[in-house]
Structure formats: C-alpha cells, structure tokens
C-alpha cells in the first residue's frame, strides 16, 4: 500500500490536530488520512483520546490547534450541525438516542438535515410537506429494515434492548446520508454473535459507498473489518498501518500490555 495518495482520494485529513483540556493534552498533534471507501479503525487504551478526536472532527469540541479537512473542505471549528450537513455522521460511545421518541422517529430526525419542509409548510400541511413526510417515513423504515429492527419501529427508543439501541443509532446516523460514518465503539457490550452481525452490517454500509471510521476495543472486530488502523496512546499516534503490521508493532504491544514485556 503506498503512502502517496492524491488529496482528492482522502475523505478526511487531519493535520497536527491537538486538543488541550487545561493541563492535559488529550490529542497531541495527530495527523491521519482516511481514504474514500475504506474502513479505518482508531484503537488505543482507555483514555488515549480517541473519543476526543471524534469530537474534534464532528465539531463538538474546538481543536486547540491543527486542521480538519473533509472532502477537500476545511471544516476546522465548524459547528456540529454544519459538520453533519456536510456529510459526517456519528454514533456515541454511551448510546445517545432520543429516549422518549419512537425508533422510527429517531431515524426520521436523522433525515432532518436533508429535508426541505419549512415551518409554514408544516403548519398548514401543504401537499409538498405531506409528500416529503411520506417519502421520509418510507426511507426511515428502509433503514430500520437495513439494520434489522423494523419490528420495533413504534417502540420508544429507551424500551429497545441494548443491542437494538446500537443498531438504531447507526440507522439514525445513516439517515443523515453521510459520506463518512464515525462509529464510537459500536461493538461494546455485544455478544460474539452480535459482533459478527455488526461486522456484516459495516460491510453493508461500506457497500452503500460510505466510508467508515470507527473506534473499537474488540480486536477481532477491528482486525476483521478494517483495512487500516491507527493506534493512539496518551493522545499521540504511535502506529499506523494494515492490521497485520500494527498487531506486531512493538510500541503498540507496550501500550496495551505495559513496558515489562
């Protein structure tokens, strides 16, 4: 695999990205490029700054320094809703669904950013609004089917079992029609069977032309689906490459097992 790729091939480019909280440098000059159409994994021990990095990309945090380029555009410092509009969707490490809304409505909220209805259209239920609602409902059902929880459409999100909540979060993220999907520990708390299903789901997402960037602890999942891996430790990038190389990297082993090895 060659390192030199033309800029347009990268969907996401981070350059010297840093985030400081008081005295703590949570992300320390990280640079990485994610290619269009690949599954890219971010791993590292707890507290390595993985979620912080996600938050910097999605606009939840303002990076202290560095640059975030998405699809050839500089999005450093954009607001979360602007980032979503441009085509980055995400899930959260500790599931953040809209608890007292139905599963279907959760996914319909995901479509929000691609919908056109204005307040006046909705107030008077103009035909174009009705039509858009029907299309969105249909698309949302398709997405629920896509992740395999269509039966639960009318249930409150909070009443779904844990695994289905994770799937619903992915469906909701897909509804924003992203070019890049950020998954924050999608397999956390899953049974082996569920992990296999998740990996299949990620492949299906990839087949839709969506690039996947995920944080994951489970090495089986990471090795099984990702093409390239970046390892973060104490906010620093310590390794990058295809799974097989990273697995053998001395610094990675040290980071996970301690220096005694």
């Amino acid at each position: 695999m060659s390192d030199q790729q033309p800029a347009t091939d990268n969907i996401l480019e981070l350059t010297d990205l840093s985030k400081r909280f008081g005295g703590l440098l949570a992300v320390d000059s990280v640079g990485l490029n994610i290619k269009r159409g690949e599954v890219f994994a971010l791993i590292g021990p707890n507290g390595a700054g993985k979620t912080t990095l996600f938050n910097c990309v999605t606009g939840l945090y303002q990076p202290t320094s560095g640059k975030v380029m998405f699809d050839g555009k500089d999005i450093t410092g954009s607001k979360p809703h602007q980032v979503a509009r441009l085509g980055i969707a995400r899930t959260f490490q500790n599931i953040r669904l809209f608890d007292y809304m139905s599963a279907l409505d959760n996914v319909r909220v995901g479509h929000h950013v691609r919908m056109k209805a204005k307040m006046w259209d909705s107030l008077f239920k103009l035909p174009r609004e009705r039509k858009e609602e029907a299309v969105i409902t249909e698309k949302s059902m398709d997405l629920l089917r896509f992740v395999g929880i269509a039966r639960q459409a009318n249930k409150y999100a909070r009443n779904l079992p844990y695994g289905q909540q994770r799937r619903l979060e992915i469906a909701r993220a897909l509804a924003t029609q992203p070019k890049l999907l950020l998954l924050d520990e999608p397999a956390a708390g899953f049974t082996p069977q569920e992990k296999v299903e998740l990996m299949q789901l990620v492949k299906k997402i990839l087949a839709r032309g969506i690039t996947v960037f995920l944080i994951e602890h489970d090495m089986k999942v990471v090795m099984g689906i990702s093409e390239r891996i970046v390892v973060l430790d104490h906010g620093e990038k310590i390794a990058e490459g295809p799974p097989d190389e990273v697995r053998k990297d001395r610094r990675v082993i040290e980071a996970y097992l301690g220096k005694s090895a």
Binding site: L60, D105, V113, R172
Partner: peptide, 15 residues
C-alpha cells in the same frame, strides 16, 4: 423533541 431528549445528539444529526 430531539433537542428535548438530547441536545448533543440532536446537533450531531444536523439540527
């Protein structure tokens, strides 16, 4: 309603 339930997640959905 999304904002009522979770403002951060709502913003991440492009609201």
């Amino acid at each position: 309603m999304a904002i009522r339930e979770d403002e951060v997640a709502a913003a991440a959905m492009g609201i």
